[in-house]
Simulated assay, not measured.
Amino acid sequence: MSTTLSTGIQPSVWIGCLACYNAGRLVGDWYDADTADLVTPEDLHGRETNHEELWVMDHEGFCGVLEGECSPSEAAELAEVLADLSEDEAAPFSAWVEVYGEQSERAHWVERFREEFRGFHKNEGHFAQEWAEDTSQPEDQARMQVWPFNAIDWDYAAQELFSGGFHSEDAPGGVYVFCPR
């Protein structure tokens, strides 16, 4: 069974035999990442072998959440975690993982990301204004269109807001905003 992310990306890994690598030979092949933990040394060699250890030496399609080498089981676990991401979530998810993705909580990364992600915004001031409008009462929203509300320095307001729990990460053309737990 192959898991393609809803981004259309199929995470894949190049799995190699460590015994062959240590002997100066490169023996391996590309596999779908979600089945990497099922690959055996016999699969790589095409015959019985006394070699035991396999290692992911290259990878693609992991939205930036896998850096360097890893075990085949780790690659399969990450592919499963990523399977639920939408195309719009891939880039901000990668930014979130870099700052908040605790390795011990991988199974819950997508769930936590969705709880903490507050969207893409032009800048922190833009987010502060939208957040104020979205969290105000309906009767306050009409008043927010006139003075003094329309004269608020939203960049200054954002400084207060972002010193109290919100966090932003630079993104092309703006920022991703998170409210980590």
Rank of each mutant, 00 (worst) to 15 (best):
N123M: 03
L54N: 04
R112W: 14
T49D: 03
E130D: 14
E60M: 06
R112N: 13
Q129S: 13
H126G: 04
M57Y: 14
E89I: 00
V97R: 05
F117G: 02
V97N: 02
R106N: 06
E105I: 05
E87R: 13
G125L: 07
S94L: 04
N123F: 07
E74N: 07
E115M: 12
C70I: 06
A83T: 04
G46L: 02
A83C: 01
E60W: 03
G125W: 05
G61I: 06
D58G: 10
N50K: 14
L82T: 03
E87W: 12
E60T: 14
L54S: 06
G61M: 10
G125V: 01
H45A: 00
E80V: 05
E60Y: 08
D88L: 12
L85M: 01
S73R: 14
L78W: 06
C70P: 05
E102W: 12
N50A: 15
A76Q: 07
H45S: 04
E105Y: 13
G61R: 08
V65N: 00
E124L: 07
A107M: 12
F93V: 02
E77T: 07
P92L: 02
E105M: 15
E105C: 10
S71F: 12
N123H: 12
W96E: 03
G68W: 02
F117E: 07
R106D: 08
N50R: 15
E77I: 00
S94F: 08
A107G: 12
E130I: 12
V99A: 12
V65I: 09
E105F: 12
R114I: 05
E80S: 14
H45R: 10
G68L: 06
A79L: 03
H51S: 08
S73N: 09
H59Q: 15
E52R: 15
F62E: 00
V81W: 02
F62N: 06
E102S: 13
E67T: 13
Q129H: 13
P92W: 05
R47F: 04
V110F: 03
L82K: 04
L54W: 08
Y100D: 00
E87C: 07
